[in-house]
């Protein structure tokens, strides 16, 4: 018995959500009194791989086969399932990222494993049960999902588990899985990344704006504030529906759910559907000219006033703070 964690990378570099998932998997392994192995697929440098030891991986299986360089979930799922069998792992942990969402269910079916998606806490293992808290109803509630199968797959929500350091370098082992041609019908033709943008689901700070901004031409000040804070930008549903901002910025029940350390809502009234998507945020700031806006009922800090006056002032204050700290 052991725990296997799949470590996602972007162009050969691991990111914070990967360190979170390794730290989480290490805690799961400790809880089960077993060891943790990581599996990485694609081209990643040796020292980047061994650095995962810092977060608790004793061993890293590295799959660098040319054929598996770009992500094809069907093929990657086969590799992860094969690695789980080889390692005798009955718990597989992944990030509940866009990639993890396409991968975890296929891995689970291959291993005949129950899957809990969107975990936010460590499993509870009292009384021989294995139950994991996860978000349901788009953030309006949590469930305790019991995994009744022998094999188990957990996908962890970004920003839901603390990164723990302290381990030493991991042992890196090359792993050559069997590949099956029928797994490669889908092909990645192109990857387009906005280079200077903070990714919304993983962002620690989110600056979000709504209809109160009056039009897409006014988003400059939102971007300025986001840049000053190193934050991702987001918006409410009416804004993305109107085409003021792209759909991938839409936060809420029918958009993206986020759980940043700080969520700043500007000119958003706070409809129940929007609040569902942000309820796991650690600190919420609402800025709205209407003192009766529902957002103030869930916010930790609030300012009543005109966004067009307050946001530029806030940006200046953040810059002044950053300059002194």
């Amino acid at each position: 018995m052991s725990v296997l964690v799949y470590v996602e990378h972007a162009e050969g570099k691991f990111k914070k959500s990967t360190f979170e998932v390794v730290s989480y998997a290490k805690s799961v392994a400790d809880k089960l009194n077993t060891g943790l192995t990581a599996i990485s697929i694609g081209t990643v440098a040796q020292d980047e791989l061994s650095s995962l030891g810092k977060y608790g991986a004793a061993k890293v299986l590295s799959v660098s086969a040319e054929k598996l360089k770009s992500f094809v979930n069907q093929a990657y799922a086969s590799v992860i399932a094969e690695a789980a069998k080889k390692e005798g792992a009955n718990v597989v942990v992944l990030s509940n990222s866009f990639t993890g969402k396409g991968l975890a269910p296929r891995v689970a079916v291959k291993l005949q494993a129950g899957l809990v998606a969107g975990a936010v806490a460590l499993p509870e293992t009292d009384g021989g049960k294995f139950s994991v808290k996860n978000t349901v109803f788009s953030g309006k509630a949590f469930a305790f999902t019991q995994l009744d199968s022998e094999n188990k797959v957990i996908s962890l929500n970004p920003n839901s588990y603390q990164v723990n350091e302290g381990g030493s370098a991991a042992q890196v082992e090359e792993f050559q899985p069997a590949t099956n041609d029928s797994d490669f019908k889908a092909m990645v033709k192109d990857i387009v990344r906005a280079s200077n943008k903070v990714s919304l689901p993983e962002a620690e700070i989110v600056v979000s704006a709504g209809r109160g901004l009056k039009g897409p031409e006014n988003w400059g000040m939102i971007e300025d504030l986001a840049n000053a804070l190193g934050a991702a930008t987001a918006c409410s549903k009416p804004v993305s529906d109107a085409g003021w901002r792209p759909h991938e910025e839409h936060v809420g029940q029918t958009g993206i759910s986020v759980s940043p350390n700080l969520y700043i809502a500007i000119g958003i009234s706070g409809a129940i559907q929007h609040l569902a998507g942000i309820s796991s945020s650690k600190v919420i700031v609402a800025i709205n000219k209407d003192p009766e806006a529902p957002f103030f009922k869930v916010a930790d800090y609030g300012i009543v006033g005109d966004a067009f006056e307050i946001v530029p002032k806030l940006t200046e204050a953040v810059k002044a703070y950053k300059a002194n700290n």
Partner: peptide, 13 residues
């Protein structure tokens, strides 16, 4: 392969 044993609503802020 899974079952929900209980639910919880977010703690009030």
């Amino acid at each position: 392969l899974t079952s929900i044993s209980s639910f919880e609503t977010p703690a009030p802020r």
